[in-house]
Design a protein around this nucleic acid. Structure first.
Lengths: 152, 152
DNA sequence: ATACATTTAATGTCAAAACATCTATTTATA
DNA sequence: TATAAATAGATGTTTTGACATTAAATGTAT
């Protein structure tokens, strides 16, 4: 369905306005799709995002501030997100030996297990994208990079 | 800056994963840019979104449920968003004569005034997009439409 | 070495989002 | 028409987000 139909707006000021609204709308749509799946596993998309970052680190500890830098949404309170993961035994936290202010975070076996249960869903999400070619996807990504660049 | 650098992830599973993360990241970025401006005018981006919908209706009343359908983020509580606009005299609410359950919402002069003060900022946002051509923007929009279509 | 600034993460507070429930009205059906 | 179902929007509750502040550790400059 076109963005026009989706948000019931049949004329936009120009192609750029349509694009901006489409990015915002599609992002909300993507997040909603994701949430639908995650709900059954009792984690939020923010928590999932942190878990993915932790898994990407393998077993190398990562500091809370470094997690924040890698997040899609930087405004969230990473400290409290980690608290939530801790409470569910999905991550563990030890104080960093080289800098006693910092805290090292590592994913647990249980966290890895949860992620591997979720992987098939992620594969399914990505499969849907095959409606566009990988080349198109890359062009697209490059364009988004350019857009953000313009706003510095 | 590329999405790789931005979220410090140097390899993605494939072009589709990169694209998905890029859409989510860029959307957050766009919203943050917008919020920076709106903060000075004491409204949230959700409230701004509702005001824009009201202005688009000219002086034709629109029901709360119809506002919801046109919103970029449908999960917000439109009832309470309208309350906020009411409290600031940016919108007015009258009960709908043809359906006494429904409520008609209209933007006020003050609301129109606020939007017109914000318009120059919106123009500036859109000007940044000129780094891509209108044709590219349209291609891009069509691609986003296709992506959402695939997930029905 | 001391004083001051910076970094790191945790916490406090308030507003907003998420989600369920409730009331009033309208629509559909027996 | 009587009853059930659906719809509109308001409200209650809990969780999360936004933003400022704090405490401890580290870095820097004199």
């Amino acid at each position: 369905m076109s963005i026009e139909t989706d948000i019931k707006q049949n004329k936009f000021r120009n192609a750029y306005q349509r694009l901006a609204l489409n990015i915002l709308y599609t992002s909300n749509w993507l997040e909603y799709q994701q949430m639908e799946t995650l709900k059954a596993y009792d984690i939020t998309s923010q928590q999932y995002n942190v878990l993915r970052i932790l898994r990407g680190q393998k077993q190398n500890p990562i500091k809370v501030s470094d997690i924040t830098e890698r997040m899609l949404d930087r405004n969230s309170n990473t400290s409290r997100l980690v608290d939530k993961l801790l409470a569910k035994n999905l991550a563990k936290r030890t104080s960093c030996p080289s800098d006693r202010r910092a805290v090292d975070v590592v994913i647990t076996e249980e966290g890895l297990q949860l992620l591997s249960e979720l992987d098939p869903f992620v594969d399914a999400w990505e499969e849907r994208y095959s409606i566009i070619t990988p080349e198109e996807a890359d062009q697209f990504s490059a364009m988004l990079d350019k857009l953000r660049e313009s706003g510095k």
